[in-house]
């Protein structure tokens, strides 16, 4: 019975499309159905058929297919505010920040830890939030770009990025800023890098050091030299 109804419904849509097609043919390019309407009409017809095939010919009404989902809870601190969440265990820190907490400043660039657009600070350390489960961060202190500064109260790194034109499209920028802020801390803390001539001893902000340490943040617009200038200013290094 349901099968019959479906076929009728689909036919009705196809017929509507046919009528519209004829209309188009007769009109010689004026008004009539647009390509978009044609495709939408066809898609609806195909979808109507597809959905009903799934439910088969039972008398019972169609019900959605449900994938069993595992949930768990976690609580941590974001930009100074305590949050308590329950979500799908698969939710990454990136997705929790963007989708659940609506902190959309942090961006999803590659979702595989290769671009750095998702960089946030966790307990003062920069990480790729796309390669971390929200559940891994129980009691952690997380800072996103929203917590670095606001339009009314810019972080010096943000002011420097503006001053030195450190971005074009802006998509990599929150990650660049979070990373750059952390890099300055890492240098201060004496963490060595691949380009450090001496492993021990104080680390210095140089252009070469900054570029190496920022290699995990890529920028398709190529704002790199301006980003480096901005960071150099914040680091108090001129020229």
């Amino acid at each position: 019975m349901i099968g019959e109804l479906v076929i009728k419904r689909a036919s009705k849509i196809s017929v509507e499309c046919e009528i519209k097609n004829k209309h188009m043919e007769n009109e010689n390019g004026s008004a009539g159905i647009t390509r978009r309407e044609m495709l939408a009409g066809t898609a609806v017809a195909v979808t109507a058929l597809a959905i009903t095939r799934v439910t088969g010919l039972e008398a019972a009404p169609a019900s959605p297919i449900v994938t069993p989902v595992e949930s768990a809870g976690v609580s941590f601190n974001v930009n100074g505010k305590a949050v308590d969440l329950e979500m799908d265990t698969r939710t990454t820190l990136l997705d929790v920040l963007r989708e659940h907490l609506h902190l959309t400043g942090t961006k999803k660039g590659c979702d595989h830890g290769q671009c750095g657009a998702c960089t946030v600070l966790v307990n003062g350390r920069r990480i790729n939030s796309c390669l971390s489960l929200a559940l891994q961060h129980q009691d952690d202190s997380i800072i996103t770009i929203e917590g670095i500064g606001t339009p009314e109260n810019l972080h010096p790194m943000q002011s420097a990025f503006i001053k030195h034109d450190g971005y074009q499209c802006g998509y990599c920028t929150p990650g660049q800023i979070c990373s750059a802020v952390a890099v300055l801390e890492e240098i201060k803390a004496g963490v060595p890098s691949h380009v450090s001539t001496e492993l021990m001893g104080p680390m210095e902000f140089t252009n070469a050091e900054f570029r190496e340490r920022m290699s995990g943040n890529i920028c398709r617009c190529g704002a790199y030299s301006n980003i480096a200038q901005a960071a150099a200013e914040v680091a108090g290094v001129t020229g």
Partner: peptide, 10 residues
Amino acid sequence: LAGASGQLRN
């Protein structure tokens, strides 16, 4: 230090 990126090493 020759491997990955700062974020990944952290």
